[in-house]
Amino acid sequence: MAAGVRLESMRRRVRLSRIAIWTVIAAGPIALCIAVTSAPTTVRATTAARPTTVRTAAAAADPAGYAQLFVSAWLRSSSDAATSGPARLAQSMAPGVDLPDTDADAQAEPAVVRWCARRGAGAMRGR
């Protein structure tokens, strides 16, 4: 007889669990309908936002000037004088790039750099 009482109490728990689960499942769409219908329907007008102007430096807009400055500083630097001005500038612009080794036959300033300096920053843009 004790087994029958335990079995009946387990059946009641299962029935109550099923009723609770079905109630929760049914309450989802009902709660959604209540939330949608109870939302306020008035919309407040907002003031028109004025566009903000952003000013950037002219040098940042032209990557050719940045590249020219880096190449010029890199060509003027050497691995022997890593604390010189051009070497520090080249390392600050591209820290992962090694400085060039100096040769005895190397020119102080290559002809390409002199040509670019005479023509200005837009020398290579026309090509």
Rank of each mutant, 00 (worst) to 15 (best):
V54P: 00
P29V: 07
F70T: 00
A60R: 12
Y66Q: 15
D62Y: 04
I25W: 01
M10Q: 07
S9N: 05
V43A: 11
A73Y: 03
T56S: 13
A60D: 15
I30R: 03
D62W: 01
T47E: 15
T47I: 13
V24M: 12
L69F: 09
A45D: 13
V24I: 14
A58G: 09
W22E: 03
W74Y: 11
L69G: 11
A60W: 12
P63Y: 11
P40C: 04
A39L: 12
Q68G: 08
R11K: 10
W22I: 01
G65C: 13
A35N: 07
G28Q: 06
V14K: 03
V24N: 06
T53N: 11
R50C: 05
R15V: 05
T41C: 00
R44N: 06
A58D: 14
V43S: 09
P51M: 05
A58T: 13
G28Y: 03
I30S: 10
A49R: 15
A64S: 12
V36A: 14
A27K: 00
R11V: 05
F70W: 15
G28V: 15
T47N: 12
R13Y: 07
L69Q: 10
S78H: 08
V54R: 10
R12H: 13
M10E: 12
Y66E: 14
A27N: 01
S72F: 04
G28S: 06
W22D: 02
A49P: 04
L75V: 10
P40V: 01
S17N: 02
A64N: 12
L32M: 10
T41W: 02
V24S: 12
T46M: 08
A57S: 15
R44L: 08
A35C: 04
G28I: 15
M10S: 05
R18P: 00
V14N: 01
S38L: 13
E8G: 03
P63Q: 11
V14L: 09
V71W: 04
I21R: 08
A67T: 10
V36P: 00
G28A: 14
V54I: 14
R44S: 11
A48I: 09
T46K: 08
A73T: 04
S17F: 07
R13W: 06
V14F: 07
V71D: 03
S17L: 05
S38W: 14
R50N: 12
T52Y: 02
A60S: 15
V36C: 07
S38G: 04
V24D: 04
I34R: 04
P40E: 07
A58H: 09
T42Y: 09
S78M: 06
I34V: 13
S77K: 02
